[in-house]
Design a protein around this nucleic acid. Structure first.
Length: 284
DNA sequence: AACATTTTCAACCGCAGGAGT
DNA sequence: GACTCCTGCGGTTGAAAATGT
């Protein structure tokens, strides 16, 4: 019964059994599912000495029932950007805070989306400069998308998403030493307590960030140091992370009209954004 | 329609570290 | 302490799909 799996999963050191590589077939997936349902997950050596990492990976990255499919939501993207700024390429650690997403998913997202944007901007994705771009362009946009999503459905907000994170006893410690000068981090613990997605009857839904629980008053569109950022049409609150530990609230506007596109297919920055950044970088 | 190029993501590889002996 | 085995992790690859010309 397990012959196929043995061929698939063996480490190649079992005499006479050829190791199979390449894409998994439906039959192999079914066999692996059946095997795990009978023997349990995590005991990979029980795959009769033929257990190998590809079986384990296939299960963990694909077959496991709680694996999420489809594109990352803006909330998830925001969380990835945030956690990556804290921990770097600790994909599995980051993945722990995104239920249903694997380290492989997150790694792929970072390499294919985030690093791609960095390449287009011709800057190192690990540089402080790129962090600045992320928090100045990308984060506001994600927040905006979260707002848009909340208009059309009641999907989880960042606080919802962070619920399990905040219940994790290790998390507050990890976020207790935030260096705002080098990280895009806001104090997620605090922020999530006060980040509210407000829905009004019309389209003027506001995404607000409160640090002290009070409604953020805002009249300025841009803050010091970010004066070249566009603020044109649609109201929303932007959190910018400056050199202090005070989150600045801005009732800001967003430059272009790309928000009508399908969020799931969104190339996070268009050429206008990149051009704006290059101008910004040139004068700063 | 055909071909070229780019993007996506599942899968592989090798290393590190922990557990057991 | 030394060794082996196993698992987890991050980096990388390459086939398939999508997109552009």
């Amino acid at each position: 019964m397990l012959n196929i799996l043995k061929k698939r999963c063996n480490n190649g050191d079992e005499e006479g059994v050829e190791q199979r590589k390449g894409p998994w077939t439906l039959e192999e997936d079914t066999l692996l599912n059946n095997y795990i349902s009978h023997n349990g997950e995590g005991r990979w050596n029980l795959l009769a000495k033929s257990s190998g990492k590809s079986c384990r990976l296939r299960w963990l990255n694909y077959l496991k029932p709680d694996i999420k499919r489809g594109n990352l939501t803006p909330q998830e993207q925001l969380l990835i950007l945030e956690l990556h700024s804290k921990w770097g390429n600790r994909w599995s650690k980051i993945a722990k805070y995104l239920p249903g997403r694997t380290d492989n998913d997150i790694k792929n997202y970072w390499r294919t989306r985030v690093q791609k944007q960095a390449r287009q901007l011709n800057i190192d994705s690990n540089s402080h400069k790129f962090l600045e771009v992320v928090r100045s362009f990308w984060v506001p946009r994600l927040i905006h998308k979260m707002k848009d999503n909340s208009n059309t459905n009641s999907k989880a907000t960042l606080p919802d998403l962070l619920g399990p994170v905040l219940q994790d006893s290790s998390f507050p410690h990890e976020f207790s030493n935030i260096d705002f000068s080098t990280s895009m981090s806001v104090d997620l613990k605090k922020t999530s307590q006060f980040m509210v997605m407000e829905s009004s009857s019309d389209l003027e839904t506001t995404c607000s960030l409160y640090l002290d629980g009070s409604r953020g008053s805002s009249s300025q569109c841009v803050s010091e140091g970010y004066s070249s950022f566009p603020c044109l049409e649609e109201d929303y609150m932007v959190a910018t992370m400056g050199s202090s530990d005070i989150l600045q609230l801005q009732d800001c506007h967003v430059a272009d009209s790309t928000y009508e596109e399908d969020v799931t297919q969104d190339p996070m920055w268009n050429m206008d954004d990149i051009w704006q950044f290059k101008e910004y970088a040139h004068y700063n």
